[in-house]
Design a binder for these strands. Structure first.
Lengths: 334, 334
DNA sequence: GCATATTTAACAAACGTTTGCTATCATGAT
DNA sequence: ATCATGATAGCAAACGTTTGTTAAATATGC
């Protein structure tokens, strides 16, 4: 069906090793024949078969990416970064969406292995999955204990949590509530740890009653907020562990005529683009998502290239930033 | 590095043809040896090499998807549909993002061909690209004349435009303005055609001065709106050719103290999830994006399976729906 | 002009599968 | 027992590349 190297060889009456060398710019073929070959290949519309190439080279120029949810712009921007970086390096990306389902995630992982990807970038939904005896390069988005043997890139969650709560306290809020994302237990815990620290730095302590789990979606945030406020206990600020939750809280406040930021302050996490809409303007913790994606790919590629000579595991940590908008009062402290 | 069929064969002292047959559930191998082989494969952690498989089977179980922009939730949802459908059929997706750049798009297309994907789903950014002598199955998202030989799935753009303007007129708006998306000339034109028809049905005509081009982004919409309103001519409704543009118009109105929907009505297109936010509630034309994605993949798969016996080209058209929210006045007509 | 060094090109094996064909072996009918 | 039958298993070619080795051709030095 497709034109192969052999067809070109037959046409020109040369051996196919010459064709291969000419096409790959390797030496061992004279200028004249090289030119002849290149022309013929072009003219005949020859397209190398990357499957065959991959088979002999043991390199497929292909990377697998497994994320939990593509409609969450947080992951969307990471993927955009990964894809751009992969393109710059002549790689292609298999995109897999696990829907926060560990079984599906594992299944995808195995298919990628069969497809002989050169490496995998994984944001795991599982708390307990182990990708133990994995020999191919693997990058983990946000690594936890289990994954100590793999490289990872992450944005400092503890610092982010700290920044968020610190800001809330700066604004004069006193009764803080927290909505975790149940899909991503570990990240939420880390952020909470930072939150705790910020409180303790001021001699306060975190009220464990005021920590609740919701799901990483607008509706999840709305419902969690409802649950929180209907208890009747005093709350004057809510820290949602991602922007969707934060937006859900905003939605609840709006419906319940709670004025933001006066009565209640709201802060989110991620800084997805929609958080900056003039109608929303959610204060949040910015994560450099696109850059994270680029770095994920580049570090993975590094790993792929020096697969043999084992190097120490890398753990790259990027810094989050506080992004103040209009859902928190303007601070009294600088 | 990886365990191959030969390793398993050696271990068991059988030929590799038997291994292959056992693993693929083909006949020609006794129950006993089949069992023995399956166990050994499992125990040794054998993972078939899909590159080799693809090479001999001429089927890679892989499909390429080229979209212009992954951070536009419109495409995000389509991709979600494609990925889900591909997963159900044991396919994997190469995701490529062209950034509305025809050259990059073409480049991606060729790489996909080299990767020997079984088919390609393409949303072209080009007005003039031709994928003429393409032999592999190709699905076009929104087909135009050029692509008549390929299957396509699309949502009826003309009808969408008609519905939008019809609604605007129902609401009593009279001075309509239109912001096209310069990235997607054809879709915008189609929608505009529908718009024109809706006006003509009431004996009115479309004022060509009130048609302007912007880019498919919030900022693009904002700027286009600014340009439009600063002319000083009467405008009481704006039809943005996608929701991002619509949201940009809303943003402009907000900044300029133009009250929506009283003074000016705004309607978007696509019904991306953020258009439904309580703070936005943009009236828009709903496109069944997820379903579109699923159908794209399924139709493509169909095509892949009956590649040989040529069938007539399919053109599947889904219907858009008017989604009334709060950026247009409640209609005076039913 | 001859021996030697160097460039150029071809051969063939390998990558990991699948599969048509052939060989072996037991089974049952005669 | 003999023969045909059918099931089981192995051989080897093929898919489209890359690449080490070898053979032929050309260039170099004297």
């Amino acid at each position: 069906m497709n034109i192969t190297i052999k067809d070109v060889a037959r046409e020109l009456g040369v051996s196919y090793s010459s064709i291969s060398r000419a096409l790959n710019g390797k030496e061992g073929v004279s200028k004249a024949t090289r030119k002849k070959i290149l022309e013929a290949a072009e003219r005949m519309g020859y397209q190398p078969n990357d499957l065959a190439r991959g088979l002999v080279n043991r390199i497929s120029k292909t990377v697998g990416v497994i994320i939990p949810d593509i409609n969450n712009p947080f992951f969307g921007e990471i993927v955009a970064g990964i894809i751009d970086a992969s393109n710059e390096n002549e790689y292609n990306i298999f995109l897999c969406v696990s829907g926060w389902n560990p079984a599906l995630e594992k299944e995808y992982f195995n298919t990628l292995l069969k497809k002989r990807v050169d490496g995998i970038i994984l944001k795991s939904a599982g708390k307990n999955e182990d990708y133990d005896n994995v020999k191919s390069p693997l990058m983990i988005i946000e690594r936890y204990s289990k994954y100590h043997e793999f490289d990872s890139v992450e944005v400092d969650n503890e610092l982010g949590g700290y920044l968020a709560v610190n800001h809330l306290l700066d604004c004069g809020y006193e009764h803080l509530a927290f909505i975790l994302g149940k899909e991503d237990f570990f990240a939420s815990q880390r952020r909470l740890k930072g939150a705790r620290k910020a409180l303790e730095d001021r001699g306060m302590t975190l009220n464990e009653d005021m920590v609740i789990e919701g799901s990483f979606s607008i509706e999840g945030g709305r419902q969690a907020a409802k649950q929180l406020f209907e208890r009747g206990k005093p709350i004057d600020a809510v820290f949602g562990m991602n922007d969707l939750i934060g937006m859900g809280v905003l939605q609840y406040c709006n419906e319940s005529d709670i004025s933001v930021p006066d009565q209640v302050g709201v802060i989110g996490y991620d800084n997805i683009s929609y958080a900056g809409l003039p109608q929303i303007r959610l204060t949040t913790i910015h994560q450099p998502k696109y850059e994270l994606g680029k770095m994920l790919f580049e570090t993975l590629l590094d790993e792929i290239k020096n697969k043999d000579n084992a190097k120490p595991t890398k753990k790259i940590i990027l810094n989050p930033e506080l992004k103040i908008r209009k859902t928190t009062r303007s601070g009294m402290h600088p």
